[in-house]
Design a protein around this nucleic acid. Structure first.
Lengths: 222, 222
DNA sequence: ACTCACAAACTGACTAAATCACTTAGCCAC
DNA sequence: GTGGCTAAGTGATTTAGTCAGTTTGTGAGT
């Protein structure tokens, strides 16, 4: 079965973006322009663009244009259509993080670099900012992975931790303990700064274990 | 900015699928039927379906219908539009796997269960089947993650290891060492069967280190 | 009774030509 | 300058239809 016109179109549009050296935030040709260039109609172009939109490769801005999206170069993605969370799915997520994150923390301690440490410390302090503050608050656990120097690890953690804004509030209301989290985050950062991989790994495991306990003993999700 | 009609539509279609208890492979209403039900036109419905197609939530079969896709319940996804691989990106991937997989192997050794072991052993033997054989060959490293009992870890590994078929051949031609891989895989399986987490972790790390060395000393990608 | 060819009937794929809604940039008056 | 208006460009959606595959049932022939 030959790939559909829509499939070939998405590849062509990606080609335009990559061959043109366009980066996230740059504008791409309008849908009408693309339709003319490929000698097809606009609904077909829009179908291809919607596919790219679903993976964050492009973004629509009504009245303005279509732009390269933030995750166009990602290898893994958070599923934008993921099923709604349940208590079980949250526990499953924490179990997976208990496997992955301690090893990531150890790696970050070994690879720690100046600019990563700065962002990591910013994430620790930002965590105390009440909700409704800055739109794109740094997530401590994502920044901890970023400090490893491997963008793929950052992608994995960001994808695992990305939940809908609505649900994030729900989770925080039930499980969050800002004070304790902040202290534990600080301890992890200190271990990373000291390049103490063993300690970073241990503290991260304990931190996630505490979170798991909080979730286990919490009431059901609505 | 209110969510677009297309966005609301994808949510509604997902609602139809989930509320109807539909599972991967089941047929969903036709585009014309959905258009009638929501009192909109077919191009708009198609845009919404294309978004769902991009994340594997639905699949089109020309002339037959639209069906629930295999990854509708995933939390993380392999980016279907990921950039083409380079030698550097392959090394980056192996570095990330060196952080994650040893910990996963240890977890799988602790949690090993009968049915998982069976699939794991099948993956080891399947690895010797020459290409062109079964369409969906089990991937040893994905099955190793599956043996942990946590579907999220399996998703992460599957997403990291999913590369285009074309590129897979390219990689194999350059780096693969079937005989050595098979031996090392067998050793890992034995450690898992013996529930020896420390050994499983060590063997997995060494295995990936060997792969990394093979890649580092290989010629550039075309 | 069985089988095979064939013809609806249904499905997705795509076209064509508009109209509406929103954003941006330029211009002009104040 | 600064505010507001306007015009051009853009995405959003509609309407109506054609083309191309797949499935299924029917009926003729065996």
């Amino acid at each position: 079965m030959p790939p559909s016109l829509s499939d070939r179109l998405t590849e062509s549009i990606l080609g335009i973006i990559r061959d043109g050296g366009l980066r996230p935030g740059d504008a791409i040709p309008s849908a009408r322009e693309l339709a003319k260039r490929f000698a097809i109609t606009t609904p077909t172009v829009r179908e291809a663009l919607r596919k790219l939109e679903a993976t964050g490769a492009v973004e629509f801005r009504h009245g303005s244009g279509t732009y390269v999206g933030p995750t166009i170069n990602n290898v893994v993605l958070a599923n934008p259509h993921r099923p709604p969370i349940t208590k079980d799915s949250v526990l499953q997520l924490i179990s997976a993080r208990l496997v992955i994150e301690p090893a990531v923390a150890a790696q970050s301690a070994l690879a720690r670099r100046a600019e990563n440490l700065e962002r990591l410390e910013a994430a620790v302090t930002n965590a105390l900012v009440p909700p409704g503050g800055p739109a794109f608050a740094l997530n401590f656990h994502v920044e901890l992975a970023a400090a490893s120097g491997n963008p793929l690890l950052q992608e994995v953690l960001a994808s695992l931790l990305k939940v809908r804004v609505r649900e994030q509030q729900q989770i925080r209301a039930l499980y969050d303990n800002r004070g304790r989290d902040h202290k534990e985050h600080q301890a992890i950062v200190e271990a990373v700064r000291a390049q103490d991989a063993v300690q970073a790994e241990r503290l991260t495991r304990e931190h996630l274990d505490n979170i798991r306990r909080a979730v286990e003993s919490s009431p059901e999700l609505s």
